[in-house]
Design a protein around this nucleic acid. Structure first.
Lengths: 231, 231
DNA sequence: CGTTCTTTTGAGACAGCTCAATTTACGTGG
DNA sequence: CCACGTAAATTGAGCTGTCTCAAAAGAACG
C-alpha cells in the first residue's frame, strides 16, 4: 500500500517527528474507507480508535434534541476525524459523516496511547491540535454572541476558503458540496437567511453561487464585511 | 510555605500522578498573588508561564473590537488560569482578570514542558483538560445557535452552580460577585434581557437574586427550563 | 419529462435589542 | 449613623433583524 506520505508529512499530528519515528507510528495504522454520505461516528458513542483523514471531507456536527444540526467543523486530508475520544477514552461529543468518499488511517486507542508514551512529540502535537480547535471555538462563541448573521456568514465562507479553497478563473472556489442549509448550520442561522444574503452578495459581485457550490469572486469585499471595514 | 495539598490532589492537572512525582512538579512552582480586579494576562499577549489557581476566582474572557466582553469561563481553585499558551508557546487567546483576591502556582513554560517529558501523565492530564474545554465550548456553540435567551441563561446559572455553588438554607448560592452584565456576557445576551428574566424567575420562586448575587431556590425548575421539560 | 431536492422570494410575526429614565443597593466619609 | 455619591438593577416603549411558514421556481438525475 503506497502511503500518501507527502500529505502525512504535513499532518499536524506528525509535525516535527523524526522520519524514523513517523514510520514507526504509521506502521501501526490500518486504512479505513468510507463512502460519500456514510456515518463514521455518532455523538455520545464510544469510538475506540483515532482516525486521521487522508482523502475526502468529513462533516463534524452535533445534533440537538429537536433535530437541528450544528456543524462544528469540516475535516479534510491531514486532519483528525476523531481525536479526543481516542486520547481520553471518552465518548465522542460529535457525529461525523463523510461528505465525499473518504479514506483515513486508524489506530486503536490503546496502541496510540502507547505510541504517545514512546514518542512524546506526538503528545505535544495532539495538544497543539486541540489548542487550535479551542481557539476556533472561542472565536465562534464570540462571533455568535456579538455579530450579526451577515458577518458570521462571511467569516464562515472565509474560513472554508482558507481551508478548502481552490483558485479558479472566477475566484476562490470552495471545493465541497455545500448547500445553503449547511452554510446556515455553520454560521448559526437559517437556510432562508443564508440564501437571501448570498443572493445579495451575488448582486454585488462578491460571490457567485450555484447549487451546493460557492465561489468567492472578491475575497477582499468579503473580508471587509467580516471585519466591518466598510463604514 | 504550606502548600494547599488537599486541593492540589484534586487538581485535574495532577490527577493520577504518583505522590512523589507530584511533589517534584510542585517543587518547581512559584507562588503568585493577584488582587481583586487585577489583570493577569491580556488577549494576544505572550505569557511564558503556566498558572494554576489555588485560591480565588478568575474571569476568562475575550474582548471584541467594539468593546463587548464575552466571558468564556470562570476559573476557580484547582483550575488552570493560563494553560494553552504555556503548552504551545503561542499567545493567549483570552484575557484573564481576578474577580477576587487570587493565588496561583506558576511554572515557566520551558520548565513545565520539561516536566511533561519527565512525567507523561502530566501531558495526558493536560489533554484531558483541553478536552473538557472543547466539550464545553462545543455545547455553548450549539446552545447559542439553537436556543433562546431564557434557556441559555438557565444553563449558565446551572453551570455556575455546579462549579461554584454553595448550599445554603435558601438554596444554592453562586459564590461569586456576579452582575446582570456578567451573566449576560456569559449567556450571549444583554444586561436588560438578563435582568428581566431573573425578575420573572424571582416571581416564580426559582431564584432569589440581589446585587451581584444569585441564589437558586429551585434547581429543579431551572433544569426544567434549561432542558425544556415543561411543555 | 416527471420526480426530487435545492434555492429563491414574499409576507408576517416576534424575540430580543436599544435607549432612556427611574429606582434600589451599597460604600464612604463626614 | 446618616447623607451622599456611585454603580447595579429595574422597567417602559419602540424598533428591527431574523425567524417562520408558505409557495413557487430552478437544477439535477434517472
Amino acid at each position: 500500500m503506497p502511503l500518501p506520505s507527502q500529505l502525512l508529512l504535513q499532518a499536524s499530528l506528525f509535525r516535527g517527528l523524526p522520519e524514523q519515528d513517523r514510520q514507526a507510528v504509521l506502521a501501526q495504522a490500518r486504512v479505513r474507507d468510507f463512502a460519500a454520505g456514510q456515518f463514521i461516528v455518532h455523538q455520545d458513542e464510544l469510538v475506540g480508535e483515532l482516525l486521521l483523514a487522508t482523502r475526502g471531507r468529513v462533516r463534524l456536527y452535533q445534533l440537538t434534541p429537536d433535530g437541528h444540526q450544528v456543524i462544528l467543523h469540516i475535516a479534510g486530508p491531514g486532519e483528525a476525524i476523531v481525536l479526543l475520544p481516542a486520547l481520553t477514552g471518552e465518548q465522542s461529543s460529535v457525529s461525523a459523516q463523510a461528505v465525499e468518499a473518504t479514506s483515513a488511517l486508524a489506530w486503536d486507542e490503546a496502541d496510540f496511547r502507547a505510541l504517545m508514551r514512546r514518542f512524546p512529540g506526538l503528545g505535544f502535537n495532539a495538544i497543539a491540535i486541540l489548542g487550535e480547535h479551542i481557539r476556533l471555538y472561542q472565536d465562534r462563541i464570540r462571533e455568535l454572541t456579538t455579530e450579526r448573521v451577515e458577518r458570521r456568514l462571511a467569516r464562515t465562507l472565509l474560513r472554508l476558503a482558507k481551508q478548502l479553497g481552490v483558485r479558479t478563473a472566477q475566484g476562490v472556489l470552495i471545493d465541497l458540496p455545500l448547500s445553503r442549509q449547511h452554510l446556515a448550520e455553520m454560521s448559526g442561522t437559517t437556510l432562508y437567511s443564508a440564501s437571501r444574503i448570498l443572493r445579495a452578495w451575488e448582486e454585488h459581485g462578491i460571490v457567485s453561487s450555484g447549487r451546493e457550490r460557492v465561489t468567492i469572486r472578491s475575497p477582499h469585499k468579503l473580508v471587509a464585511i467580516a471585519e466591518d471595514l466598510q463604514r
